[in-house]
C-alpha cells in the first residue's frame, strides 16, 4: 500500500475494508435498517446529500454520504467513538435532495440509536432525557425572571403546571424503549 505523504489527510482504506467478514458487513447494515434507515441500501453515492449538509461544510468526519458508505462496507467500531451523528441538525436538506429516497437524516439518527444501545451517548443528551422525564421539557429553566419581566405567569400552561399531564407523560416514557435502556432514573 502507498502511504500518504505527511500532511495529506488519510482516506478510507478500501482494500483493507473489503477483506472484512461479509457477515459483519450485513450485520451493521441490518442494525441501522432496523433502527429506521431502511433505504440506505439504495444509496448510489452521488454526493447530493453531502453538497447540502452543514456537517460536511464545517468538516465533521462522518457526514451523511461518507457514513452511508462506511455502513455499507460494514464499519461499526470506527463509528462508535465519533460525534458526527450527534451533530446532525436534523435539517433534512439531504432528504429533500436525495434522488434515491434514502433519507440520510434517518441514517444519521439510526446510527445515533445504534450508539445509544452501546451506551455511546453524549452527556448532554442524557441531561436532555432526564429533564424531559422530570419536567416534560428537555430544555428547562428554574429561573422565571424572564417570564415575569414580559408580563407572563411564572409557569407556562405545560407539564410544568399540570401534575396529571406530567404523570401521563411519565407513563408514556416508561412504556417505551427509554425505560428498557435504563439511561436515566425513572422510578417515580
Amino acid at each position: 500500500m502507498i502511504e500518504p505523504e505527511e500532511g495529506v489527510p488519510t482516506v478510507l482504506n478500501l482494500s483493507e475494508i473489503a477483506e472484512r467478514e461479509k457477515e459483519e458487513e450485513e450485520k451493521v447494515v441490518e442494525i441501522v435498517r432496523e433502527f429506521g434507515a431502511e433505504n440506505l441500501i439504495y444509496c448510489m453515492q452521488c454526493g447530493s446529500c453531502a453538497a447540502v449538509c452543514p456537517l460536511a461544510r464545517v468538516g465533521f468526519e462522518w457526514y451523511n454520504k461518507k457514513l452511508i458508505k462506511a455502513l455499507l462496507l460494514g464499519l461499526k467500531e470506527e463509528l462508535l467513538d465519533d460525534p458526527t451523528p450527534w451533530a446532525c441538525v436534523a435539517c433534512n436538506r439531504c432528504t429533500e435532495v436525495c434522488p434515491r429516497l434514502v433519507s440520510p437524516f434517518e441514517v444519521m439518527f439510526a446510527v445515533r440509536r445504534m450508539m445509544v444501545e452501546e451506551f455511546a451517548i453524549p452527556t448532554l443528551a442524557i441531561e436532555g432525557l432526564r429533564a424531559l422525564y422530570e419536567y416534560g421539557h428537555a430544555v428547562y429553566m428554574t429561573g422565571r425572571e424572564a417570564r415575569k419581566k414580559v408580563g407572563l405567569p411564572e409557569k407556562p400552561p405545560s407539564t410544568d403546571s399540570d401534575e396529571q399531564a406530567l404523570k401521563d407523560l411519565k407513563t408514556i416514557l416508561k412504556n417505551t424503549k427509554l425505560a428498557e435502556l435504563g439511561l436515566i432514573p425513572m422510578n417515580d
Partner: peptide, 24 residues
C-alpha cells in the same frame, strides 16, 4: 393546550427510538 410538553426535540426521543418519539 394545557398539559403540553416538549415536542420531543431531536436529541431526546428521536435519538432513542421511533415509536417512543411518535408516542410523545
Amino acid at each position: 393546550l394545557k398539559g403540553q410538553s416538549c415536542c420531543p426535540t431531536w436529541g431526546t426521543m428521536p435519538s432513542i427510538d421511533i415509536v417512543a418519539w411518535c408516542a410523545v
